[in-house]
Design a protein around this nucleic acid. Sequence first.
DNA 1: TTCCGACAGTGGGGTCGCAAT
DNA 2: ATTGCGACCCCACTATCGGAA
Length: 512
Amino acid sequence: MLLSRLAEVSREVAATAARSRKTTLLAELFREAEADDVPIVIPYLAGRLPQGRLGVGWKVLSRPVPPAAEPSLTVREVDARLSELGKVSGPGSQAERTRIVGELMGAATEEEQRFLLGLLTGEVRQGALDAVAVEGLARATGADPADVRRAVMLAGSLQTVAQALLAEGPGALERFRLTVGRPVLPMLAHSASSVAEAVEKLGACAVEEKLDGIRVQVHRDGSAVRIHTRTLDDITDRLPEVTRAALGLASERFVLDGEVISFDADGRPRSFQETAGRVGSRTDVARAAREVPVCPVFFDVLLVGGQELLDLPFSERHALLAELVPGPMRVRRTVASGPQHIPEAEQFLADTLARGHEGVVVKALDAPYSAGRRGASWLKVKPVHTLDLVVLAAEWGHGRRTGRLSNLHLGARNPDGTFAMLGKTFKGMTDAMLAWQTEKLQELAVEDNGWGVTVRPELVVEIAYDGLQRSSRYPAGVTLRFARVVRYREDKRPGEADTVESLLAAHPEVKP
DNA sequence: TTCCGACAGTGGGGTCGCAAT
DNA sequence: ATTGCGACCCCACTATCGGAA
Protein backbone atom coordinates (compact mmCIF):
# COMPACT_ATOMS: atom_id res chain seq x y z
CA MET A 1 0.00 0.00 0.00
CA LEU A 2 1.20 3.47 -0.88
CA LEU A 3 1.75 5.96 1.92
CA SER A 4 -0.18 8.49 -0.18
CA ARG A 5 -3.34 6.35 0.10
CA LEU A 6 -2.96 6.26 3.87
CA ALA A 7 -2.34 10.00 4.08
CA GLU A 8 -5.41 10.60 1.92
CA VAL A 9 -7.65 8.46 4.15
CA SER A 10 -6.24 10.13 7.24
CA ARG A 11 -7.16 13.53 5.81
CA GLU A 12 -10.67 12.39 4.89
CA VAL A 13 -11.24 10.84 8.32
CA ALA A 14 -10.09 14.03 10.00
CA ALA A 15 -12.46 16.06 7.82
CA THR A 16 -15.63 14.26 8.89
CA ALA A 17 -17.23 14.40 12.32
CA ALA A 18 -19.53 11.38 11.85
CA ARG A 19 -18.06 8.24 13.38
CA SER A 20 -20.09 6.08 11.03
CA ARG A 21 -18.38 7.75 8.07
CA LYS A 22 -14.94 7.36 9.68
CA THR A 23 -15.73 3.66 10.15
CA THR A 24 -16.68 3.28 6.49
CA LEU A 25 -13.48 4.96 5.32
CA LEU A 26 -11.33 2.75 7.52
CA ALA A 27 -13.19 -0.41 6.47
CA GLU A 28 -12.48 0.41 2.80
CA LEU A 29 -8.82 0.94 3.57
CA PHE A 30 -8.53 -2.35 5.47
CA ARG A 31 -10.05 -4.26 2.55
CA GLU A 32 -7.39 -2.82 0.23
CA ALA A 33 -4.49 -3.58 2.59
CA GLU A 34 -2.25 -6.60 2.09
CA ALA A 35 -1.57 -8.79 5.10
CA ASP A 36 1.93 -7.39 5.64
CA ASP A 37 0.64 -3.82 5.54
CA VAL A 38 -1.74 -4.31 8.45
CA PRO A 39 0.67 -4.19 11.38
CA ILE A 40 1.90 -0.87 10.02
CA VAL A 41 -1.33 0.70 8.77
CA ILE A 42 -3.25 0.13 12.01
CA PRO A 43 -0.91 2.01 14.35
CA TYR A 44 -0.25 4.71 11.76
CA LEU A 45 -3.96 5.44 11.60
CA ALA A 46 -4.06 5.81 15.36
CA GLY A 47 -1.07 8.16 15.17
CA ARG A 48 1.32 5.64 16.71
CA LEU A 49 4.47 3.95 15.47
CA PRO A 50 4.85 0.17 15.69
CA GLN A 51 8.42 0.77 16.88
CA GLY A 52 7.21 2.89 19.77
CA ARG A 53 8.80 6.30 20.17
CA LEU A 54 11.90 6.89 18.14
CA GLY A 55 13.59 9.71 19.98
CA VAL A 56 12.75 12.10 17.15
CA GLY A 57 11.44 15.46 18.26
CA TRP A 58 11.02 18.95 16.91
CA LYS A 59 14.77 19.47 16.85
CA VAL A 60 15.21 16.83 14.17
CA LEU A 61 12.00 17.56 12.28
CA SER A 62 12.10 21.34 12.11
CA ARG A 63 14.38 21.44 9.06
CA PRO A 64 12.18 21.72 5.94
CA VAL A 65 12.93 19.38 3.03
CA PRO A 66 11.60 19.94 -0.52
CA PRO A 67 8.77 17.46 -1.17
CA ALA A 68 8.71 14.89 -3.99
CA ALA A 69 6.39 15.62 -6.91
CA GLU A 70 4.88 12.13 -7.22
CA PRO A 71 3.98 9.61 -4.53
CA SER A 72 6.21 6.54 -4.52
CA LEU A 73 6.74 5.53 -0.89
CA THR A 74 5.00 2.41 0.35
CA VAL A 75 4.03 2.05 3.98
CA ARG A 76 6.42 -0.89 4.30
CA GLU A 77 9.32 1.20 3.01
CA VAL A 78 8.49 3.92 5.50
CA ASP A 79 8.32 1.37 8.30
CA ALA A 80 11.72 -0.06 7.33
CA ARG A 81 13.30 3.42 7.33
CA LEU A 82 11.81 4.21 10.72
CA SER A 83 13.02 0.90 12.15
CA GLU A 84 16.49 1.85 10.95
CA LEU A 85 16.01 5.19 12.71
CA GLY A 86 15.07 3.50 15.95
CA LYS A 87 18.30 1.48 15.97
CA VAL A 88 20.56 4.54 15.83
CA SER A 89 22.14 5.28 19.20
CA GLY A 90 25.28 6.56 20.85
CA PRO A 91 27.30 9.72 20.22
CA GLY A 92 26.44 11.52 17.02
CA SER A 93 23.11 9.76 16.85
CA GLN A 94 21.10 12.93 16.54
CA ALA A 95 22.96 13.93 13.37
CA GLU A 96 22.39 10.47 11.92
CA ARG A 97 18.70 10.61 12.79
CA THR A 98 18.42 14.01 11.15
CA ARG A 99 19.96 12.55 7.97
CA ILE A 100 17.57 9.59 7.83
CA VAL A 101 14.53 11.76 8.47
CA GLY A 102 15.69 14.18 5.77
CA GLU A 103 15.99 11.36 3.24
CA LEU A 104 12.54 10.04 4.09
CA MET A 105 10.93 13.46 3.90
CA GLY A 106 12.64 14.13 0.56
CA ALA A 107 10.93 11.07 -0.92
CA ALA A 108 7.50 12.14 0.33
CA THR A 109 4.95 14.41 -1.35
CA GLU A 110 3.61 17.42 0.48
CA GLU A 111 0.56 15.56 1.82
CA GLU A 112 2.72 12.61 2.83
CA GLN A 113 5.15 14.94 4.59
CA ARG A 114 2.31 16.44 6.60
CA PHE A 115 1.17 12.96 7.61
CA LEU A 116 4.68 11.77 8.53
CA LEU A 117 5.32 14.90 10.54
CA GLY A 118 2.14 14.33 12.51
CA LEU A 119 3.08 10.71 13.03
CA LEU A 120 6.60 11.42 14.25
CA THR A 121 5.53 14.21 16.58
CA GLY A 122 2.50 12.30 17.86
CA GLU A 123 0.15 14.94 16.51
CA VAL A 124 -2.01 12.97 14.13
CA ARG A 125 -5.46 14.08 15.24
CA GLN A 126 -8.26 12.73 13.13
CA GLY A 127 -10.87 11.78 15.70
CA ALA A 128 -10.26 8.08 15.19
CA LEU A 129 -8.14 5.97 17.48
CA ASP A 130 -8.48 2.30 18.35
CA ALA A 131 -12.23 2.34 18.94
CA VAL A 132 -13.03 3.49 15.41
CA ALA A 133 -10.44 1.14 13.94
CA VAL A 134 -12.11 -1.75 15.78
CA GLU A 135 -15.43 -0.83 14.18
CA GLY A 136 -13.79 -0.52 10.77
CA LEU A 137 -12.09 -3.88 11.15
CA ALA A 138 -15.33 -5.55 12.13
CA ARG A 139 -17.03 -3.99 9.10
CA ALA A 140 -14.24 -5.04 6.74
CA THR A 141 -14.21 -8.66 7.91
CA GLY A 142 -17.82 -9.29 8.87
CA ALA A 143 -16.94 -9.95 12.51
CA ASP A 144 -19.03 -8.84 15.49
CA PRO A 145 -17.61 -5.53 16.76
CA ALA A 146 -18.05 -6.64 20.38
CA ASP A 147 -15.98 -9.78 19.73
CA VAL A 148 -13.26 -7.74 18.05
CA ARG A 149 -13.18 -5.30 20.96
CA ARG A 150 -12.87 -8.08 23.49
CA ALA A 151 -10.08 -9.76 21.55
CA VAL A 152 -8.18 -6.45 21.43
CA MET A 153 -8.47 -5.97 25.19
CA LEU A 154 -7.25 -9.50 25.84
CA ALA A 155 -4.43 -9.30 23.34
CA GLY A 156 -3.51 -5.85 24.67
CA SER A 157 -2.88 -4.88 21.07
CA LEU A 158 -5.04 -3.94 18.11
CA GLN A 159 -2.37 -4.84 15.55
CA THR A 160 -2.16 -8.46 16.59
CA VAL A 161 -5.91 -8.91 16.35
CA ALA A 162 -6.17 -7.00 13.08
CA GLN A 163 -3.54 -9.12 11.41
CA ALA A 164 -5.14 -12.39 12.46
CA LEU A 165 -8.61 -11.17 11.56
CA LEU A 166 -7.70 -9.97 8.07
CA ALA A 167 -5.68 -13.09 7.34
CA GLU A 168 -8.08 -15.70 8.70
CA GLY A 169 -11.46 -14.04 9.15
CA PRO A 170 -13.71 -13.86 12.24
CA GLY A 171 -12.78 -17.40 13.33
CA ALA A 172 -9.37 -16.11 14.38
CA LEU A 173 -10.93 -14.22 17.30
CA GLU A 174 -11.37 -17.46 19.26
CA ARG A 175 -7.63 -17.56 19.85
CA PHE A 176 -7.55 -14.40 21.93
CA ARG A 177 -8.12 -15.51 25.47
CA LEU A 178 -6.61 -14.35 28.71
CA THR A 179 -3.19 -15.98 28.88
CA VAL A 180 -0.75 -15.92 31.77
CA GLY A 181 2.25 -13.86 30.70
CA ARG A 182 0.34 -11.77 28.17
CA PRO A 183 -0.97 -8.54 29.75
CA VAL A 184 -4.52 -7.34 29.17
CA LEU A 185 -5.67 -3.74 29.25
CA PRO A 186 -6.72 -2.91 32.81
CA MET A 187 -10.22 -1.87 33.82
CA LEU A 188 -10.50 1.82 34.65
CA ALA A 189 -12.79 3.92 36.83
CA HIS A 190 -15.06 6.92 36.35
CA SER A 191 -15.32 9.71 38.91
CA ALA A 192 -18.16 10.39 41.32
CA SER A 193 -18.45 13.45 43.50
CA SER A 194 -19.41 11.64 46.70
CA VAL A 195 -19.57 8.20 48.24
CA ALA A 196 -23.35 8.55 48.58
CA GLU A 197 -23.73 9.27 44.87
CA ALA A 198 -21.52 6.30 43.97
CA VAL A 199 -23.32 3.85 46.27
CA GLU A 200 -26.74 5.00 45.07
CA LYS A 201 -25.68 4.53 41.47
CA LEU A 202 -24.15 1.08 41.89
CA GLY A 203 -26.35 -0.64 44.49
CA ALA A 204 -24.53 -3.47 46.27
CA CYS A 205 -20.89 -2.52 46.15
CA ALA A 206 -17.44 -2.72 47.71
CA VAL A 207 -15.79 0.48 48.89
CA GLU A 208 -12.03 0.09 48.57
CA GLU A 209 -9.15 2.37 49.51
CA LYS A 210 -7.50 4.11 46.54
CA LEU A 211 -3.73 4.08 46.87
CA ASP A 212 -1.69 6.79 45.18
CA GLY A 213 0.91 4.60 43.50
CA ILE A 214 1.54 2.81 40.20
CA ARG A 215 -1.02 0.39 38.75
CA VAL A 216 0.42 -3.08 38.13
CA GLN A 217 -0.75 -6.33 36.61
CA VAL A 218 1.22 -9.28 37.97
CA HIS A 219 1.40 -12.57 36.05
CA ARG A 220 2.88 -15.74 37.50
CA ASP A 221 3.37 -19.03 35.70
CA GLY A 222 5.42 -21.35 37.90
CA SER A 223 8.68 -19.56 38.61
CA ALA A 224 8.13 -16.98 35.87
CA VAL A 225 6.72 -13.62 37.03
CA ARG A 226 6.02 -10.61 34.81
CA ILE A 227 4.89 -7.19 36.00
CA HIS A 228 3.17 -4.71 33.68
CA THR A 229 2.01 -1.10 34.02
CA ARG A 230 -1.35 0.37 33.03
CA THR A 231 -0.08 0.84 29.46
CA LEU A 232 1.31 -2.72 29.52
CA ASP A 233 4.97 -1.74 29.74
CA ASP A 234 7.04 -4.51 31.29
CA ILE A 235 8.61 -3.27 34.54
CA THR A 236 9.48 -6.66 36.04
CA ASP A 237 13.19 -5.88 36.32
CA ARG A 238 12.57 -2.76 38.38
CA LEU A 239 10.48 -4.38 41.11
CA PRO A 240 12.29 -7.44 42.55
CA GLU A 241 10.33 -7.27 45.80
CA VAL A 242 7.05 -7.58 43.88
CA THR A 243 8.39 -10.65 42.07
CA ARG A 244 9.34 -12.18 45.43
CA ALA A 245 5.89 -11.44 46.82
CA ALA A 246 4.24 -13.11 43.81
CA LEU A 247 6.44 -16.20 44.19
CA GLY A 248 5.42 -16.38 47.83
CA LEU A 249 1.72 -16.80 47.05
CA ALA A 250 0.07 -20.20 47.23
CA SER A 251 -0.87 -20.67 43.56
CA GLU A 252 1.53 -21.37 40.70
CA ARG A 253 -0.59 -19.63 38.06
CA PHE A 254 -2.44 -16.36 38.43
CA VAL A 255 -3.01 -12.85 37.10
CA LEU A 256 -3.48 -10.15 39.74
CA ASP A 257 -4.45 -6.50 39.44
CA GLY A 258 -3.29 -3.96 41.98
CA GLU A 259 -1.10 -1.02 42.85
CA VAL A 260 2.48 -0.71 44.05
CA ILE A 261 3.21 1.93 46.63
CA SER A 262 5.91 2.77 49.14
CA PHE A 263 5.38 3.41 52.85
CA ASP A 264 7.54 5.30 55.31
CA ALA A 265 8.75 3.92 58.64
CA ASP A 266 5.46 4.81 60.34
CA GLY A 267 3.44 2.93 57.75
CA ARG A 268 2.15 6.12 56.13
CA PRO A 269 2.11 6.14 52.32
CA ARG A 270 4.94 8.11 50.77
CA SER A 271 4.11 10.79 48.21
CA PHE A 272 3.27 9.76 44.68
CA GLN A 273 6.45 11.50 43.55
CA GLU A 274 8.57 9.19 45.70
CA THR A 275 6.83 6.00 44.59
CA ALA A 276 6.89 7.01 40.93
CA GLY A 277 10.57 7.92 41.15
CA ARG A 278 11.35 4.51 42.58
CA VAL A 279 9.36 2.64 39.93
CA GLY A 280 11.00 4.75 37.24
CA SER A 281 14.53 3.92 38.42
CA ARG A 282 16.29 1.45 36.12
CA THR A 283 20.03 1.97 36.49
CA ASP A 284 20.61 0.91 40.09
CA VAL A 285 17.54 -1.06 41.06
CA ALA A 286 19.13 -2.68 44.13
CA ARG A 287 19.91 0.69 45.64
CA ALA A 288 16.55 2.19 44.71
CA ALA A 289 14.84 -0.83 46.31
CA ARG A 290 16.81 -0.30 49.53
CA GLU A 291 16.01 3.39 49.71
CA VAL A 292 12.38 3.24 48.64
CA PRO A 293 11.02 -0.29 48.98
CA VAL A 294 7.58 -0.81 47.47
CA CYS A 295 4.73 -3.14 48.36
CA PRO A 296 2.19 -4.63 45.99
CA VAL A 297 -1.39 -4.19 47.18
CA PHE A 298 -3.91 -6.16 45.13
CA PHE A 299 -7.62 -5.59 44.54
CA ASP A 300 -8.60 -8.02 41.80
CA VAL A 301 -7.77 -11.41 40.31
CA LEU A 302 -8.29 -12.14 36.60
CA LEU A 303 -7.10 -15.72 36.51
CA VAL A 304 -6.11 -18.34 39.03
CA GLY A 305 -5.08 -21.95 38.43
CA GLY A 306 -6.59 -22.78 35.08
CA GLN A 307 -9.67 -20.63 35.53
CA GLU A 308 -10.23 -17.37 33.66
CA LEU A 309 -12.31 -15.08 35.90
CA LEU A 310 -13.07 -12.01 33.79
CA ASP A 311 -16.77 -12.72 33.44
CA LEU A 312 -17.37 -13.62 37.05
CA PRO A 313 -19.06 -10.98 39.23
CA PHE A 314 -16.64 -8.97 41.35
CA SER A 315 -17.95 -10.55 44.56
CA GLU A 316 -16.82 -13.99 43.33
CA ARG A 317 -13.51 -12.74 41.99
CA HIS A 318 -12.83 -11.11 45.33
CA ALA A 319 -13.58 -14.30 47.23
CA LEU A 320 -10.91 -16.05 45.14
CA LEU A 321 -8.53 -13.12 45.67
CA ALA A 322 -8.96 -13.43 49.44
CA GLU A 323 -8.06 -17.14 49.23
CA LEU A 324 -4.91 -16.45 47.26
CA VAL A 325 -3.57 -13.21 48.71
CA PRO A 326 -3.11 -12.57 52.45
CA GLY A 327 -4.86 -9.57 53.99
CA PRO A 328 -1.91 -7.18 54.27
CA MET A 329 -1.31 -7.54 50.54
CA ARG A 330 -4.90 -6.63 49.65
CA VAL A 331 -6.53 -3.18 49.68
CA ARG A 332 -8.67 -2.42 52.71
CA ARG A 333 -12.36 -2.42 51.91
CA THR A 334 -15.86 -2.40 53.29
CA VAL A 335 -18.99 -3.75 51.66
CA ALA A 336 -22.13 -1.64 51.27
CA SER A 337 -25.04 -3.84 50.27
CA GLY A 338 -27.26 -0.82 49.63
CA PRO A 339 -27.98 2.85 50.37
CA GLN A 340 -28.59 2.04 54.06
CA HIS A 341 -24.83 1.54 54.38
CA ILE A 342 -23.87 4.97 53.08
CA PRO A 343 -22.87 6.25 56.56
CA GLU A 344 -20.42 3.34 57.02
CA ALA A 345 -19.05 3.92 53.52
CA GLU A 346 -18.54 7.61 54.30
CA GLN A 347 -16.78 6.72 57.53
CA PHE A 348 -14.54 4.32 55.58
CA LEU A 349 -13.56 7.16 53.22
CA ALA A 350 -12.79 9.43 56.19
CA ASP A 351 -10.61 6.71 57.80
CA THR A 352 -8.84 6.04 54.50
CA LEU A 353 -8.01 9.73 54.10
CA ALA A 354 -6.82 9.88 57.70
CA ARG A 355 -4.40 7.06 56.91
CA GLY A 356 -2.96 9.29 54.20
CA HIS A 357 -4.49 7.70 51.11
CA GLU A 358 -6.03 9.34 48.08
CA GLY A 359 -9.68 8.36 48.35
CA VAL A 360 -11.81 5.32 47.57
CA VAL A 361 -13.01 3.35 44.58
CA VAL A 362 -16.60 2.13 44.77
CA LYS A 363 -17.14 -1.08 42.77
CA ALA A 364 -20.37 -2.86 41.87
CA LEU A 365 -20.31 -6.38 43.30
CA ASP A 366 -22.13 -7.87 40.32
CA ALA A 367 -19.87 -6.40 37.62
CA PRO A 368 -17.50 -8.44 35.45
CA TYR A 369 -13.94 -7.27 34.82
CA SER A 370 -14.27 -4.99 31.76
CA ALA A 371 -10.72 -5.09 30.45
CA GLY A 372 -9.66 -1.88 28.75
CA ARG A 373 -12.86 -0.03 29.49
CA ARG A 374 -13.68 2.85 31.74
CA GLY A 375 -16.73 0.97 32.86
CA ALA A 376 -19.48 2.63 34.87
CA SER A 377 -19.16 -0.07 37.54
CA TRP A 378 -16.04 1.41 39.18
CA LEU A 379 -16.37 4.93 40.57
CA LYS A 380 -13.54 6.78 42.28
CA VAL A 381 -14.22 9.37 44.95
CA LYS A 382 -11.50 11.80 45.99
CA PRO A 383 -11.77 14.99 48.04
CA VAL A 384 -11.57 18.16 45.96
CA HIS A 385 -10.00 21.38 47.24
CA THR A 386 -10.65 24.83 45.77
CA LEU A 387 -8.79 28.11 45.71
CA ASP A 388 -9.37 31.58 44.30
CA LEU A 389 -6.31 32.42 42.22
CA VAL A 390 -5.30 35.22 39.86
CA VAL A 391 -4.62 34.76 36.15
CA LEU A 392 -1.07 35.94 35.41
CA ALA A 393 -0.82 34.94 31.74
CA ALA A 394 -2.48 32.71 29.14
CA GLU A 395 -1.17 30.62 26.25
CA TRP A 396 -2.69 30.20 22.78
CA GLY A 397 -4.39 26.83 22.35
CA HIS A 398 -3.85 24.19 19.68
CA GLY A 399 -6.14 21.99 17.57
CA ARG A 400 -9.76 22.84 18.22
CA ARG A 401 -8.58 25.59 20.59
CA THR A 402 -6.54 27.39 17.92
CA GLY A 403 -7.16 31.14 18.17
CA ARG A 404 -8.34 30.86 21.78
CA LEU A 405 -6.37 31.75 24.88
CA SER A 406 -6.45 28.41 26.62
CA ASN A 407 -3.77 27.49 29.13
CA LEU A 408 -3.89 29.80 32.17
CA HIS A 409 -0.94 30.66 34.41
CA LEU A 410 -2.22 30.78 37.99
CA GLY A 411 -0.90 32.86 40.87
CA ALA A 412 -1.47 33.00 44.63
CA ARG A 413 -0.98 36.18 46.64
CA ASN A 414 2.34 36.96 48.36
CA PRO A 415 2.48 39.09 51.55
CA ASP A 416 3.82 42.06 49.55
CA GLY A 417 0.88 42.08 47.13
CA THR A 418 2.72 40.37 44.25
CA PHE A 419 1.72 36.92 42.98
CA ALA A 420 3.58 33.60 42.98
CA MET A 421 2.85 31.31 40.04
CA LEU A 422 1.56 27.93 41.22
CA GLY A 423 1.10 26.18 37.89
CA LYS A 424 -1.07 26.17 34.78
CA THR A 425 -4.40 24.76 33.73
CA PHE A 426 -6.42 24.29 30.55
CA LYS A 427 -9.07 22.05 32.11
CA GLY A 428 -12.70 22.65 32.95
CA MET A 429 -13.43 25.41 30.43
CA THR A 430 -16.51 25.31 28.24
CA ASP A 431 -16.35 26.75 24.73
CA ALA A 432 -18.21 29.82 26.02
CA MET A 433 -15.63 30.34 28.76
CA LEU A 434 -12.82 29.97 26.24
CA ALA A 435 -14.39 32.65 24.04
CA TRP A 436 -14.99 34.95 26.99
CA GLN A 437 -11.51 34.62 28.49
CA THR A 438 -9.87 35.13 25.09
CA GLU A 439 -11.57 38.55 24.85
CA LYS A 440 -11.10 39.50 28.48
CA LEU A 441 -7.44 38.48 28.74
CA GLN A 442 -6.54 40.38 25.58
CA GLU A 443 -8.03 43.49 27.18
CA LEU A 444 -5.83 42.89 30.22
CA ALA A 445 -2.71 42.07 28.18
CA VAL A 446 0.47 43.96 28.94
CA GLU A 447 2.73 41.90 26.70
CA ASP A 448 2.36 39.64 23.66
CA ASN A 449 4.90 36.83 24.02
CA GLY A 450 4.18 34.93 20.83
CA TRP A 451 3.11 31.86 22.83
CA GLY A 452 0.40 33.92 24.51
CA VAL A 453 -0.09 37.04 26.58
CA THR A 454 1.01 38.28 29.98
CA VAL A 455 -1.82 40.15 31.68
CA ARG A 456 -2.39 42.61 34.49
CA PRO A 457 -3.14 40.36 37.51
CA GLU A 458 -6.78 41.36 37.90
CA LEU A 459 -8.90 38.38 36.95
CA VAL A 460 -9.80 35.99 39.78
CA VAL A 461 -10.65 32.39 38.94
CA GLU A 462 -11.86 29.57 41.18
CA ILE A 463 -9.64 26.52 40.76
CA ALA A 464 -10.30 22.96 41.90
CA TYR A 465 -7.31 20.69 42.60
CA ASP A 466 -6.57 17.31 44.15
CA GLY A 467 -3.67 18.26 46.36
CA LEU A 468 -0.37 20.03 46.67
CA GLN A 469 2.95 18.59 45.58
CA ARG A 470 6.52 19.69 45.84
CA SER A 471 7.93 21.55 42.85
CA SER A 472 11.37 22.66 41.76
CA ARG A 473 9.87 24.70 38.95
CA TYR A 474 7.63 27.18 40.73
CA PRO A 475 8.74 29.96 43.11
CA ALA A 476 6.70 28.85 46.14
CA GLY A 477 8.32 25.40 45.94
CA VAL A 478 4.92 23.77 45.46
CA THR A 479 2.42 23.25 42.65
CA LEU A 480 -1.20 22.14 42.36
CA ARG A 481 -2.03 18.59 41.35
CA PHE A 482 -4.65 18.31 38.59
CA ALA A 483 -5.72 21.96 38.68
CA ARG A 484 -8.91 22.79 36.76
CA VAL A 485 -11.16 25.84 36.36
CA VAL A 486 -14.47 25.84 38.21
CA ARG A 487 -15.68 29.38 37.37
CA TYR A 488 -14.56 32.97 37.08
CA ARG A 489 -15.01 35.14 40.17
CA GLU A 490 -15.76 38.54 38.72
CA ASP A 491 -17.16 39.46 42.13
CA LYS A 492 -13.68 39.15 43.66
CA ARG A 493 -10.77 41.55 43.53
CA PRO A 494 -7.23 40.17 43.18
CA GLY A 495 -6.55 41.38 46.71
CA GLU A 496 -9.10 38.82 47.90
CA ALA A 497 -7.33 35.89 46.21
CA ASP A 498 -5.92 33.07 48.36
CA THR A 499 -2.38 33.47 49.66
CA VAL A 500 0.64 31.18 49.40
CA GLU A 501 0.74 31.16 53.17
CA SER A 502 -2.82 29.88 53.62
CA LEU A 503 -2.28 27.29 50.89
CA LEU A 504 0.79 25.89 52.66
CA ALA A 505 -1.06 25.94 55.96
CA ALA A 506 -3.87 23.87 54.43
CA HIS A 507 -1.39 21.15 53.39
CA PRO A 508 1.02 20.81 56.32
CA GLU A 509 2.25 17.40 55.07
CA VAL A 510 3.83 19.02 51.98
CA LYS A 511 7.14 20.74 52.64
CA PRO A 512 8.24 23.21 49.96
C1' DT B 1 -37.63 12.07 21.59
C1' DT B 2 -34.42 12.43 25.18
C1' DC B 3 -30.70 10.56 27.74
C1' DC B 4 -26.36 8.77 28.54
C1' DG B 5 -22.11 5.83 27.59
C1' DA B 6 -17.97 5.86 25.09
C1' DC B 7 -14.45 8.52 22.69
C1' DA B 8 -11.35 11.90 21.27
C1' DG B 9 -9.02 16.02 22.26
C1' DT B 10 -6.53 19.32 25.15
C1' DG B 11 -2.95 19.62 27.62
C1' DG B 12 -1.06 19.66 33.35
C1' DG B 13 3.50 18.23 36.73
C1' DG B 14 7.17 15.10 38.09
C1' DT B 15 11.00 11.78 37.44
C1' DC B 16 14.39 9.12 35.11
C1' DG B 17 17.97 8.51 31.75
C1' DC B 18 20.36 9.61 27.57
C1' DA B 19 22.73 12.81 24.49
C1' DA B 20 24.50 17.19 23.71
C1' DT B 21 26.82 21.19 25.47
C1' DA C 1 28.69 18.73 35.55
C1' DT C 2 24.72 20.76 33.65
C1' DT C 3 20.98 21.20 30.46
C1' DG C 4 17.52 19.79 27.13
C1' DC C 5 14.42 16.50 25.80
C1' DG C 6 11.69 12.28 25.20
C1' DA C 7 9.28 8.52 27.51
C1' DC C 8 6.11 7.32 31.02
C1' DC C 9 3.97 7.67 35.36
C1' DC C 10 -0.16 10.06 37.48
C1' DC C 11 -4.55 12.67 35.55
C1' DA C 12 -9.70 16.14 34.77
C1' DC C 13 -12.77 17.81 32.02
C1' DT C 14 -15.84 19.12 27.76
C1' DA C 15 -17.87 18.20 23.20
C1' DT C 16 -19.78 15.05 20.27
C1' DC C 17 -21.80 10.95 18.11
C1' DG C 18 -24.92 7.39 18.13
C1' DG C 19 -27.20 3.68 20.44
C1' DA C 20 -30.25 2.83 24.58
C1' DA C 21 -34.26 3.95 27.00
